[in-house]
Structures are given as structure tokens and as C-alpha cells.
């Protein structure tokens, strides 16, 4: 019971603190609106907010899927082929020195104002954590399992499929949790740089018109979705890797 009530209590507590700050400091409404104004904006602009949220959520989910697939494939290639490890891994690590955010204007230039540039941004931002986490898992297979597979006459491919990949799933899960929390950042940054739809676009649009309550309403929708996304992925991973002791998750 307490498990369910706790998030609600935390949420209400934060609302009270927010309201107190507004009331005690008398801060202007266009700097920090009170919770009620934000909820009122949420109610008034609900259809518009949902339509923009749909765009952002699509970008996030597509980026998450694409980044996960690309990251997993890269990790598999790097783990399986020494050549790839020697030539690709250093490039991958050095490429991380480029701030992904700085690429946003270029991506918009190349891929346009539509969905593609935001999906690319979200994909790029999660690609590295997924690749590194999965690769790390793949190269840390319990040596005894590999010895056993060798003595049993297992082929390299089957050993990968039956032992190395399942054994690397907990490590991949850590990467996916990071991915779930950073993918929204990629999409929103992409929308800020250039877009005609999405919660990031709506926030910039509202900002230019000093509709701070709408900005906060958009932020609230984004935050709720991000939290739901994280917990949904966490839940799925726990089910898929139920054999892993919970403390390690």
C-alpha cells in the first residue's frame, strides 16, 4: 500500500513546496506560475499538448528502438571480430568527445525540420551507452561457461547465442535504463534547434509569448512520460531477466 502511496505523497509534497515558494516570495507569474495556473493551462490546452506530446513520444520511441538495435549490433560486431575491436572501438570512444548536442543543428540541416532529425538525435544520444554496456557484458562472460561450451563442442555462433548474449543481458539492461532516461533529452534538443511540432517546439513557442504556464504544462507532460517510460522499461527488463538476482538490477 505504502509502495503505491509514496510517489503520490512525494508529488503532493513537491506541489506544496512549489506553492509555498510562489506565495512567500511573491515571484511574478511570468517567472514562476503557481501550480494551479499550470494545471489550468494543462486543462485548457490538453488537446494541443497531447498532439505535440504524440510527436515527441514518437521521436523518443523510434530513437530508442533504433539506437538500441544499432548499439546491440555494434557491440556484437566489436565483441565477435578482433579487427572491429581494434579499428572501430577507438573511433567510437573518440567520437564521444563530440558533444551530441552540438550536432543538433547539423542534423536539422541534413535531415530537415521533421521527425528524422529528432529521431537521429535521440538515436545518437543513446547509441553509445547501449553499445558500451552490451559490449562490456559480452566480453565479461564467465570463463567457466566458455570452457564448458568449448569442451561440449559448441560452435562460436551457438555459444554466442546460447551463452554470451543471455549472460550479457543484465549489462545491456543497465545501458537500456540509461538510454530510457536520456532519449527524451535528445528529442527535445532536436526540437529546440528546429521543428514545427513536439513538446520542445511548444515550449519555445510558449516562451516567446511569455505563456510560462503552458511551458510548465508541457514540461509536466514530458516529465510524466519520461518517468512512465523509465519504469515501463525497468519493468520489462525485470521480467525478461527474472533469473538475475534483484539486487544486481
Amino acid at each position: 500500500m505504502m509502495k503505491l502511496a509514496r510517489p503520490l505523497i512525494i508529488f503532493l509534497g513537491l506541489l506544496i513546496v512549489w506553492q509555498l515558494i510562489v506565495s512567500l516570495t511573491g515571484v511574478a507569474k511570468f517567472i514562476l506560475p503557481d501550480p494551479l495556473s499550470v494545471f489550468s493551462a494543462l486543462y485548457r490546452r490538453w488537446p494541443e499538448l497531447m498532439s505535440h506530446a504524440g510527436v515527441t513520444i514518437t521521436e523518443i520511441l523510434l530513437g530508442l528502438g533504433l539506437g538500441t538495435v544499432m548499439g546491440c549490433l555494434s557491440a556484437l560486431v566489436i565483441a565477435q571480430y578482433r579487427g572491429a575491436r581494434l579499428w572501430v572501438l577507438p573511433v567510437l570512444v573518440v567520437s564521444q568527445a563530440i558533444p551530441v548536442f552540438a550536432l543538433a543543428p547539423i542534423l536539422v540541416l541534413w535531415l530537415g525540420y521533421g521527425l528524422a532529425s529528432k529521431v537521429a538525435m535521440a538515436t545518437l544520444i543513446i547509441y553509445f551507452p547501449v553499445t558500451v554496456a552490451f559490449y562490456d557484458g559480452l566480453r565479461r562472460t564467465e570463463p567457466g561457461w566458455l570452457d564448458l561450451a568449448q569442451v561440449m563442442g559448441g560452435s562460436r555462433w551457438r555459444t554466442l547465442m546460447q551463452i554470451r548474449i543471455p549472460a550479457a543481458l543484465p549489462a545491456l539492461a543497465s545501458g537500456l535504463r540509461v538510454a530510457a532516461s536520456v532519449a527524451p533529452i535528445g528529442a527535445i534538443i532536436g526540437e529546440w534547434v528546429g521543428s514545427s511540432a513536439g513538446l520542445g517546439y511548444l515550449m519555445l513557442h510558449a516562451n516567446a509569448r511569455l505563456q510560462v504556464d503552458v511551458m510548465f504544462a508541457a514540461l509536466l507532460v514530458l516529465a510524466v512520460f519520461a518517468v512512465c517510460l523509465y519504469f515501463a522499461i525497468d519493468r520489462i527488463l525485470r521480467v525478461v531477466i527474472s533469473w538475475q538476482p534483484d539486487k544486481a538490477l
Partner: peptide, 23 residues
């Protein structure tokens, strides 16, 4: 080996049949 080397994601029966799966 000294450690049982059972794969934690497979049932006991599937662990026993691991060799066939790997081949």
C-alpha cells in the same frame, strides 16, 4: 568443474541438455 557452471537463465533440465543445444 569446481563451480557447477549451470546457466542461471535455463531450467535444470535445459542445463542438462546444454551440450545438444550448443552443437
Amino acid at each position: 568443474a569446481q563451480q557447477d557452471l549451470l546457466l542461471p537463465w535455463l531450467s535444470v533440465l535445459d542445463n542438462v541438455m546444454l551440450g545438444s543445444r550448443l552443437r
